[in-house]
Amino acid sequence: MSHGGGHLRFEQVKLAYGIGPRETVVMESFNLSVSAGESVALVGPSGCGKTSVLYALCGLLKPRSGSITIGDERVEKPRRDVALILQDAGLLPWKTVWANASLGLQLAGESTQPVRSKLEELHIEELAQRYPSELSGGQRQRVGIARALASDPRILLMDEPLASLDAFTRERIQELFLELWLKRKHTQLLVTHNLEEAVFLGQRVVVLSDKPAKILEEIENPRAGSPDWRYSDGFYDQVQVLRKVLS
């Protein structure tokens, strides 16, 4: 199913934790614009505030100043059209695959019927009654994706979603992310430490500086979006460009 993505914008945003003398400013006067249907990768040093960008977009972290908008609406609380995928998929160990995947819909008091098709789409329908502890890392991540997609979000946020996976599974899930993005055309914002992953999935790679984070460079990566891009000559050149910016 093709999905019209959401345009998101950070304008003069200040994000911070704590108050008074204990305030830690993560980013100040931060500006970022992501077009509807675009796939952007955020890279930068550990603790620079990449994850905070995602939390702010989810409505879990309120900006101290500036504004974050999706389309014409300000983000003030978690929204149904924004889904977040966490590092270990954020699955609840006490819920089955089915219950985990349908959680968002259940919380919103909606029918969990669409979950079946999402599990089928991700080839995990036979795991529906299993618990996360009975799944491999790749299967767990697929459940996380099914949960995120169950509510048909316009914006998909991913916080190091593949960090805990082995190299082979990581590549397979990267291809799955790409396939889903090509099919659904949602807006995608990926936080990663893996430069190859950023170059493979991000049409634009935004490089952040250390805290308080500023945009060091935005690298256009127009060939992203093709499954063969990883095997093309220019792929590792692009990774090298990114590596140089970060060093």
Partner: peptide, 11 residues
């Protein structure tokens, strides 16, 4: 992580 995952889903 569990709290975050459920809060982000709008709980």
């Amino acid at each position: 992580n569990h709290v975050l995952s459920v809060r982000s889903a709008g709980a």
